[in-house]
Amino acid sequence: MAVSVRDVAVAASVSVGTVSNVLNNPAKVSPEMVVRVQQAIAELGFVRNDAARQLRAGRSRSIGLVVLDISNPFFAEVARGAEARAAESGMTVLLSTSDEKLEREGAHLELFREQRVNGVLVTPVGDDLARLRSLQASGVPVVLVDRETDDDAFASVAVDDVEGGYLAVSHLLSAGRRRIAFVGGPASLRQVADRLEGARRAVAEVDGATLVEVEMPALSVLNGRAAGEELRGRAGADAVDAVFAANDLLAVGLLQGLAVLGGVRVPADMALIGYDDIDFASATVVPLSSVRQPAYEIGFRAVDLLLRGLDAPDGAHERRVRFRPELVVRESTTG
Rank of each mutant, 00 (worst) to 15 (best):
D161C: 04
P186F: 04
E148I: 07
V159E: 03
G185T: 10
G184M: 06
S134A: 15
L167W: 08
L144Y: 00
R133G: 15
G176S: 11
G184W: 13
A199V: 00
D150R: 12
R179D: 04
S188F: 06
S156W: 05
D160N: 15
I180Q: 04
D151P: 13
G176V: 04
A187L: 13
A155Y: 03
V183E: 08
G139T: 02
H171F: 09
S188I: 11
A187N: 02
Y166G: 12
A181K: 01
G185W: 04
A181D: 03
R147D: 05
D152E: 14
G176I: 00
R178M: 14
S174N: 11
R200A: 03
F154A: 07
R195E: 08
L196W: 01
S188T: 14
G164V: 00
R201Y: 02
L196S: 12
S174P: 03
F154D: 04
G164E: 01
V145D: 09
P141E: 04
Q191K: 08
L144N: 01
R178C: 06
P141L: 07
A193Y: 04
R190G: 08
Q136E: 12
V192T: 15
V157M: 00
S156G: 08
A187S: 14
R190S: 15
S188E: 13
F182D: 09
S174W: 05
L196Y: 03
A153W: 02
P186I: 05
P186K: 05
A181I: 09
R147I: 10
V140F: 11
F154P: 07
A175L: 11
R179C: 10
V159R: 03
A199I: 00
A137W: 03
V142R: 11
A153V: 12
I180R: 09
L173F: 05
Y166W: 12
G165Q: 08
L172R: 10
P186H: 06
S170I: 01
R133I: 01
D160A: 11
E197P: 00
L172K: 10
A175S: 12
V145E: 07
A193V: 01
D152S: 15
G176C: 12
E197Y: 00
E163M: 07
V145H: 11
S174G: 11
V159S: 05
R179S: 15
Q191I: 02
R190C: 02
E148S: 14
R190I: 06
V169G: 11
G165H: 09
V143K: 05
D152F: 11
I180L: 12
L167C: 08
L189M: 13
A181T: 07
A193K: 01
S134L: 04
D146E: 13
A153P: 00
L167P: 03
Y166P: 05
R178P: 08
L135M: 13
F182L: 08
S188H: 12
R133P: 03
A153G: 15
L196T: 04
R201H: 10
G165E: 08
A175P: 00
S134I: 00
D161M: 00
A158Y: 13
A155K: 03
S170H: 13
A187T: 11
A193T: 14
A153Q: 12
